[in-house]
Design a protein around this nucleic acid. Structure first.
Length: 579
DNA sequence: GCCGTTTTCGGCCCGACTGTTTTCAGTCG
């Protein structure tokens, strides 16, 4: 059993115990246990098998035994018995905004509601509104939340598909009959959410490759299987398509299946203007038309673009939103790469709601080849996240100074805070305290329902504070789960430009906020970006990967992203904008 | 169920907001 599965089982136990009205502290113990399993630095499942979990904080005797059982037998009797008491669909009810354990338990016991489909019926026929604690507004909110969820059905965040994409791609590339393979589609274009994964491979033996593809271990169900293409579902319900083509066709197919559809339309039109027809297999001269000869050998996508008089357009830019004009005039940006990052800001430690200590986070960042790490734990108003008060923050600053002494200039910790932007736009800490920090991230964490004008004013007031270095997750959205609050982004960008405030690109796959669609505007206005993992564990630092994808999609180069600066320059840059 | 300058049992994170109530329970962050 994988650690992800084990963690999910512990989480589900916590939910079921909540439904049963169990002791809340016992429930929290299971939730903590799930987090520990999820983010433990080391092979926790092997430790469980070997019976070496003693001393792992958060895992006591009971969880130790349960983890051992899961790791060795692949199941957990306690969980199987517990979940048999409730319908399977009950879990999805927790995804509905406004529904918690108490309301779900009431719906289930009084109306037999055991799934979102049941819930929808109960809301629409008026029975739900009759339950004590439910009313008209509750029902409306529930229906809204269900509608939002339906609109995004069968969509996945990129972190949910990343491992499958890599594993399948490796399997394809490993295949003796495959010469080249790639993930195409919206995954390759760096989209933040997607419906399926499109794989492409070049081979002389398509049927053999297809047959082996549908037998991969992660394949749950074969939807279709033919001579050159197949579709399957993984256990997680993710659809994966494979197309097998010849080596000569490969660059054309790669281009075609990467899309976007709008980009492809323009590509084909440009080819037609030359008298060529373009499809997923190659160029052909249009019947009866004067046309230049088709380039004889096209081995890669760049040569297709060159044949059409264009610079190579990176997949992330292929949305027909100006990339052709830029490619024609040699004005495409040289997009940022993961390797350009020299450090990261906005990270949490055990002082607030992170799972790793200051030292562990620093060591993990060094191991990733970074030169610096910015700490930004929550401020006191974020009680839920164990936010730091003034005394604890000053203690952390001192601790950071001590660690920096120890690093002797080889690595640098920056002291910061993720300070709450309060309802009126004032900040959770005084200017005096903020001035003692190396930098400050300001974020909204409560009162999401303000009208747009008020929310915009609130955030701009925070931006105008000279101690606010950067603005955190500007819209508060959680992809596929919660829409952004109402806010006027162009007005925020203008305010950031006027005050020299950096805007964060929160790299958590849940957020990717500010959205890639706004970065070109921000860049035009001279606003700098900081790609921030918002890491709550050492593993979380690696989320910068998703942030870089989004930054590339937003046309950003290393020059636009502040944490591409080497240590020797970044400190000054943190101050410069606000000087 | 976990933890502990407690060795064995008491404490474990808090406040705002919402909608339903008529003083507060439930949810969220």
């Amino acid at each position: 059993m994988t650690r992800e599965t084990a963690a999910q089982i512990l989480e589900r136990i916590a939910l079921l115990l909540e439904l049963k009205g169990e002791n809340p502290f016992k429930i929290r113990a299971y939730k903590t246990g799930a987090e520990v399993v999820e983010s433990y630095p080391g092979d926790i499942m092997q430790l469980a098998i070997d019976g070496k979990l003693a001393g792992v904080k958060g895992i006591g005797e009971a969880l130790r035994d349960k983890l051992h059982e899961m790791a060795t037998t692949g199941k957990l009797e306690f969980f199987d018995k517990l979940r048999a008491e409730f319908p399977e669909g009950l879990f999805e009810l927790f995804e509905v905004q406004g529904l918690g354990p108490k309301k779900i338990a009431a719906l289930y016991s009084q109306l037999g509601v055991g799934s979102i489909a049941d819930l929808k019926v109960a809301c629409e026929d008026g029975t739900a509104a009759k339950i004590s604690g439910f009313g008209e507004k509750t029902v409306v909110k529930i229906l809204e939340s269900i509608a939002f969820r339906d609109a995004h059905a069968s969509e996945f965040r990129v972190d949910q598909v990343y491992a499958v994409a890599q594993t399948m791609l490796e399997a394809l590339r490993d295949h003796p009959a495959v010469s080249r393979a790639e993930v195409c589609g919206s995954f390759r274009r760096g989209k933040e959410t997607l419906h399926d994964l499109d794989f492409l491979c070049a081979t002389k033996k398509p049927e053999e490759v297809i047959a082996d593809f549908v037998r991969l271990p992660m394949v749950e169900k074969v939807i279709a299987q033919g001579g050159t293409k197949a579709s399957i579902y993984t256990a997680g319900g993710l659809q994966c398509d494979l197309r097998a083509v010849s080596s000569a066709e490969y660059p054309f197919a790669l281009n075609y299946f990467t899309g976007s559809k709008e980009h492809n339309v323009v590509m084909r039109q440009r080819a037609l203007d030359k008298g060529w027809s373009l499809n997923e297999y190659g160029f052909t001269v249009v019947e009866g038309k004067e046309a230049p000869p088709i380039p004889e050998e096209i081995y890669n996508e760049a040569e297709i673009y060159r044949a059409l008089g264009l610079d190579f357009i990176e997949p992330e830019l292929r949305e027909n939103s100006g990339e052709f004009e830029a490619a024609e005039h040699g004005q495409l940006p040289r997009l940022i790469e993961l390797e350009n990052l020299r450090g990261v800001f906005h990270n949490h430690t055990t002082a607030s709601d992170g799972t790793a200590s200051l030292r562990e986070m620093a060591e993990a960042a060094r191991d990733l080849g970074m030169q610096y790490l910015g700490i930004a734990d929550h401020s006191k108003s974020s009680f839920q996240a164990n936010g730091l008060n003034e005394v604890r923050l000053r203690a952390q600053i001192a601790e950071i100074h001590a660690l920096n002494e120890e690093f002797e200039g080889h690595f640098r910790l920056f002291s910061g805070t993720e300070v709450d932007i309060l309802k009126d736009g004032s900040l959770d800490f005084s200017d005096e305290l903020l001035s003692e920090l190396d930098y400050c991230v300001a974020s909204v964490h409560n009162v999401f329902n303000l009208p747009e004008a008020e929310m915009t004013k609130r955030i701009i007031r925070a931006i105008e504070n000279p101690h606010v270095t950067m603005l955190g997750h500007v819209t508060g959205r959680l992809l596929l789960q919660r829409p952004s609050y109402a806010v006027n982004i162009p007005a925020i960008i203008d305010a950031a430009a006027a005050t020299g405030t950096i805007i964060e690109l929160n790299a958590s796959a849940w957020r990717l906020d500010m959205d890639w669609r706004w970065w070109r505007l921000a860049k035009e206005k001279g606003v700098k970006c900081s790609i921030n993992p918002d890491a709550h564990s050492t593993r979380g630092l690696q989320d910068v990967l998703f942030g870089v994808r989004a930054a590339r999609k937003g046309w950003l180069t290393r020059k636009d992203v502040i944490n591409c600066l080497p240590l020797s320059e970044v400190e000054q840059a943190l101050r410069k904008g606000k000087a």
